[in-house]
Amino acid sequence: MAYNLKETSLKPERLTGGHRMCAGCGAPVVARSVLRALKPEDKAVITSATGCLEVSTFIYPYTAWKDSFIHSAFENSAVTCAGVEAAYVNMKKTGQLDDTYKFIAFGGDGGTYDIGIQSLSGAMERGHDMVYVCYDNGAYMNTGIQRSSATPKYADTTTSPAGKVVPGKQQYRKDLTAVMVAHNLPYIAQTAPIGNFKDIYEKAEKAIYTEGPAFLNVLAPCPRGWRYDTPKLIEMAQLAVDTCFWPLYEVENGVYKLTYKPKNKRPISDWLEAQGRFRHMAKDAEKVEELQQEVDRRWDLLLAMCGEK
């Protein structure tokens, strides 16, 4: 059935209000969008890495999750989920359970790109039937905006401050989606919460209902870390997509497919200038040009992979 936003509003909400994420945070928007792709009759177990999403949605004695949920530590959301999934396989095999469950692990870019990459790689390689969702807000926001390997070059963070000598982070961001492609998973996608949420919904649905391990990398703007006004959440994601900083694509059994091609590719400066974390360099033509070239290089590569060139 073709995607219809209004139809999806009929599904039960699986992440309730009453959690304590910041006003205007992108992460719960990503989480509830992914969960909306679950069939209402299916049950789920959700895991989360330590991070904003976890410490704000499950503060004793309140859980915002309507499904069973487990958090154990920072670097192991993937394998904690894999442990639950293994238990499910055993319970099914031994006739202890009739219901259908789906398994979704969440982690921020810190818990996914960095400290959690070993556990993620292991769980994906072993082929557990689960979805790992990275909500990438481009820094360790939970501990106070420290740089991660997902942080864009030149971003001002509390451990890559824009100083008098060193103007913010000195490295380009790691392309984790590409790293996950190298795991030869049945389904991998990069998406963002934009427009009528068709892209994120359809990818979440495919990820959840493709047998075997799947990985979603989802851009999740952070008003505090990126330094923009809270109402602009969706605008920020849209700009990242339209500048091709964050292309939307999927890789199904190794086959790349671009799922969104901006009609007018916007210059990276549009995205940089909208955020306080780039204020120190957004007018520096040389640096902006350098970033533009890197965005173009990666975009061209992707177009080639997707057979768009």
């Binding site: 909400e13 309730t16 209000g17 009453g18 994420m21 719960p28 928007v29």
Partner: peptide
């Protein structure tokens, strides 16, 4: 779908109001 606090109340594919118990006013 854009509400971080699940505070847009819907019924029968229609918006019916805002959950002010949880809305944090992000805009």
């Amino acid at each position: 779908p854009v509400c971080p606090d699940s505070s847009i109340l819907t019924e029968d594919k229609k918006m019916i109001g805002i959950d002010y118990d949880h809305c944090k006013g992000c805009g």
